[in-house]
Simulated scan of single mutants.
Amino acid sequence: MTRAQLLRGGWGSSKKSIIRPPWSKNEVLFIDLCSRCGACIETCPENIIILGSGKFPVVDFQKGECNFCHQCAEVCQYHAFDVKQQPWHIKIDIKDNCLSKIGVVCQSCSDVCQQNVINFSLQMGGVPSIDLNTDVCTGCGACVEVCPKNSISMKV
């Protein structure tokens, strides 16, 4: 936990995990380097980077997916990003209220997943079961916005 999280009351267990823009340096260093100028927010072509707590940029996958264009990292004058590392270490998480998990045929997440992370196996006389291959998940978040039950999130 960072000092800022402690001072803002970020110790609660209900706290949602914060997802910074891709290629952000580790949280402590990012908070130290980021000037909160908003350049990364303004330059994001997908408009998924928004103001978060403390006016630091966060990613909101309810607005769309990341296409890994590098623009947020390139526009930063404060060196809060490192494009030599992986964009991030986030993966898909599907909750139990997923339509497919409760017996309703829905494959909207699989339809938009270009990495084939989400697949469905046919079941004899039933709803196809969901299969995840998180090893190939890039964390783009394309599946989050299309889920009709908001069952999909990205986890750090």
Results as ranks from 00 to 15, higher is better:
residue 97 N to G: 00
residue 25 K to T: 14
residue 60 D to Y: 04
residue 61 F to Y: 14
residue 87 P to K: 04
residue 104 V to T: 12
residue 29 L to A: 13
residue 112 V to N: 06
residue 80 A to L: 04
residue 108 S to Q: 05
residue 10 G to Y: 01
residue 143 C to D: 04
residue 67 N to D: 08
residue 113 C to V: 02
residue 29 L to G: 11
residue 137 C to Q: 04
residue 62 Q to S: 13
residue 133 N to S: 14
residue 58 V to G: 08
residue 77 Q to L: 11
residue 19 I to F: 01
residue 100 S to H: 06
residue 145 E to I: 08
residue 95 K to I: 03
residue 8 R to Q: 14
residue 83 V to I: 13
residue 50 I to M: 03
residue 16 K to A: 12
residue 99 L to M: 02
residue 110 S to F: 00
residue 111 D to V: 14
residue 124 M to V: 14
residue 98 C to Y: 05
residue 96 D to H: 05
residue 136 V to S: 15
residue 146 V to E: 02
residue 114 Q to S: 12
residue 94 I to V: 13
residue 115 Q to V: 12
residue 76 C to W: 00
residue 41 I to W: 05
residue 95 K to N: 09
residue 93 D to G: 13
residue 43 T to F: 06
residue 109 C to F: 00
residue 91 K to P: 03
residue 85 Q to M: 08
residue 65 E to A: 10
residue 45 P to H: 06
residue 127 V to A: 09
residue 77 Q to A: 15
residue 31 I to T: 05
residue 48 I to A: 01
residue 58 V to M: 09
residue 17 S to C: 10
residue 96 D to T: 09
residue 31 I to D: 14
residue 113 C to G: 08
residue 104 V to M: 06
residue 119 N to S: 11
residue 80 A to W: 01
residue 94 I to W: 02
residue 26 N to E: 14
residue 60 D to H: 05
residue 108 S to M: 09
residue 48 I to Y: 01
residue 28 V to E: 14
residue 64 G to R: 13
residue 123 Q to I: 14
residue 11 W to F: 15
residue 109 C to W: 01
residue 24 S to L: 10
residue 97 N to Y: 05
residue 81 F to L: 07
residue 67 N to F: 09
residue 25 K to D: 14
residue 36 R to D: 05
residue 43 T to E: 08
residue 93 D to C: 09
residue 63 K to N: 12
residue 7 L to W: 09
residue 49 I to D: 00
residue 77 Q to I: 07
residue 82 D to W: 00
residue 73 A to W: 01
residue 117 V to Q: 00
residue 111 D to I: 13
residue 25 K to E: 12
residue 144 V to Q: 01
residue 29 L to Q: 13
residue 21 P to T: 13
residue 92 I to K: 04
residue 120 F to T: 11
residue 70 H to T: 08
residue 139 G to H: 15
residue 110 S to T: 02
residue 81 F to M: 04
residue 56 F to I: 10
residue 141 G to F: 01
residue 106 C to G: 04
residue 120 F to V: 13
residue 32 D to G: 05
residue 45 P to S: 06
residue 44 C to A: 05
residue 47 N to F: 09
residue 39 A to V: 04
residue 138 T to P: 07
residue 89 H to T: 13
residue 71 Q to E: 09
residue 20 R to Q: 11
residue 143 C to M: 05
residue 130 I to P: 08
residue 63 K to Y: 11
residue 81 F to H: 01
residue 9 G to V: 10
residue 12 G to D: 12
residue 19 I to K: 02
residue 77 Q to D: 10
residue 24 S to R: 10
residue 34 C to H: 06
residue 39 A to K: 15
residue 98 C to Q: 01
residue 105 V to F: 06
residue 56 F to C: 04
